[in-house]
Simulated assay, not measured.
Amino acid sequence: MSSHAQRAASRSFMSKYLNKETLKYVFTTHFWGPVSNFGIPIAALYDLKKDEALISGPMTGALVVYSAAFMKFALAVQPTNYLLFGCHAINEVAQLGQGFRYLNYHYFGDNKKVENDKETVVSNTESK
């Protein structure tokens, strides 16, 4: 690609994406609110690797409801805030995953398996 073509491509990119309207949007709460909110889904995705015994059922339930409400809000405001919607959609999926892990651990048998393994280890140590 010649330098003239590169200059033309960069000018085209800049005029399309780095214009007055884009800069105006970047300096609003419509942009920075969702960007700062992305800490919640990032933490939720990171927590999917942690031990199930540490999951708080009530907090996970609250975050599922919170994210669902804000997904609806993000689509209701004008102009529609797709960045906020995406942030809470990611959080909703992560929190539902945490909720499934919580229920599986506490109610559907994974916890019982761990307790049985601990009892086996304790009984084997006592018999020696």
Rank of each mutant, 00 (worst) to 15 (best):
S2Y: 09
S2C: 05
S3Y: 10
H4F: 08
Q6W: 12
R7E: 07
A8C: 05
S10Y: 07
S12R: 13
Y17C: 02
Y17N: 02
Y17I: 02
N19T: 03
N19K: 00
N19I: 01
N19P: 03
K20W: 06
T22L: 04
T22P: 02
L23D: 00
Y25R: 14
F27R: 12
F27N: 12
F27P: 02
T28Q: 10
T29A: 08
H30N: 11
P34H: 11
V35C: 07
V35Y: 11
V35T: 12
S36E: 11
F38W: 11
G39S: 13
G39M: 10
P41T: 02
I42W: 04
L45E: 09
Y46E: 04
L48F: 09
K50P: 10
E52L: 01
E52F: 06
S56Q: 14
G57D: 12
P58H: 12
P58L: 08
M59L: 14
M59K: 10
M59R: 13
M59E: 14
T60E: 05
G61P: 04
G61A: 13
S67I: 05
A68K: 06
A68T: 12
A68I: 05
A69G: 12
F70I: 07
M71N: 10
K72C: 09
K72G: 11
F73G: 03
A74N: 01
A74C: 00
L75T: 02
L75D: 07
A76H: 08
V77W: 10
V77S: 06
V77K: 10
Q78M: 08
Q78I: 05
Q78E: 14
P79R: 07
Y82E: 05
F85K: 01
C87R: 08
A89Y: 06
A89N: 03
E92D: 09
E92H: 14
E92P: 09
V93G: 02
Q98F: 02
G99H: 07
F100G: 03
R101E: 08
Y102I: 06
Y102V: 03
L103Q: 12
H106G: 08
Y107I: 03
G109V: 08
D110I: 08
N111V: 08
V114E: 15
E119P: 01
E119W: 00
N124K: 15
T125S: 13
